[in-house]
Amino acid sequence: MRTELMSAASVPTEHPAAGHARVPLLDVAGLTLDFETRSGRVKALDDVGFTLQKGEILGIVGESGSGKSVLSYAIMGLLNEAARLTAERLTFNGLDLAAGTTDLAALRGRELSMIFQSPRTALNPIRRVGEQIADVLVRHGPMPRAQARDEAVAALARVRIPDPKARARAYPFELSGGMCQRVMIAMALACRPALLIADEPTTGLDVTTQAVVMDLIRDIVDDTHMAAILITHDLALAGEYADRLMVMHAGHVVETAPTEALLADPRHPYTRRLFAATPTADTTLDTLSTVPGRLPDLRRVLLPCRFAGRCDRHQPECDAGPVPVVPVGIDHCVRCRVPT
């Protein structure tokens, strides 16, 4: 949990001024990402900025196509050659990730780690899971294979897999979905990274297993001061586990705030719509609303506000130039000219 309070006038994309703010582990500002495709230039991300502190979980929420996953690929340096990435700032632990001088392959798996959706397809089906974890340790430890095998068993024990020694010898098909996702987490955490990116880590798992896996990630963050980014379309899940939330829509960050503040008082019209469309324990079918329209085609010429076509608060001034990110509360910012 963050303890320092940002002054209401400061914008989170601003580099922390000398004084009260800590230097963030991950610092992103003015990140813009286009893809050159045969059917035109896809403006996937525009002017994305956020910071992440050690020991903090940032939840990124939004519909599919909002740019959540591609943002994590940009951070991890996993984009293909069609991508055109520019950023005012993209630093991790003081290293410039966008410069091309940082050896990302050496960082990935050691300092920066990622767990993907569908653990069964992410794991190699014909190798024992213990060996797959040992591979990471041999590459990044670096350490001899025999030692890496022992470490792999310890890594499985850390994610509370019962009888880790026996499970290390199992193939992915011999394990349940929840168990495979724990293996993925064990692998991602084997080198004790500073940042874990979890992209829909519990999609496809049962609610009961989801709760166990998410509790585990939360515990590891609390115990080791690792930072984590939780990418999910499930607002309730992000709301329960993240310290801060960032709402994305069509490649823009439309709202960021500490979780409690955002849940209590969402200010961007899209965030409000998204909340109202998410079923909770007291929703009825009559109170459950919808988000009208759909995401704009990111290959077309876009209005300055990418939510304009779906927004019921749209004003003529919304189309006048880029929409500024404005503070609306303590550490709470929206990209909107007419916040609610």
């Binding site: 609610v207 009961t208 989801q210 709760a211 998410m214 499930d234 309730a236 899940l237 709301g239 329960e240 586990y241 979780t259 409690e260 849940l263 909770t280 324990a281």
Partner: peptide, 8 residues
């Protein structure tokens, strides 16, 4: 086990 922000 249903995620619920109220249970943070």
């Amino acid at each position: 086990a249903i995620p619920d922000p109220a249970r943070r």
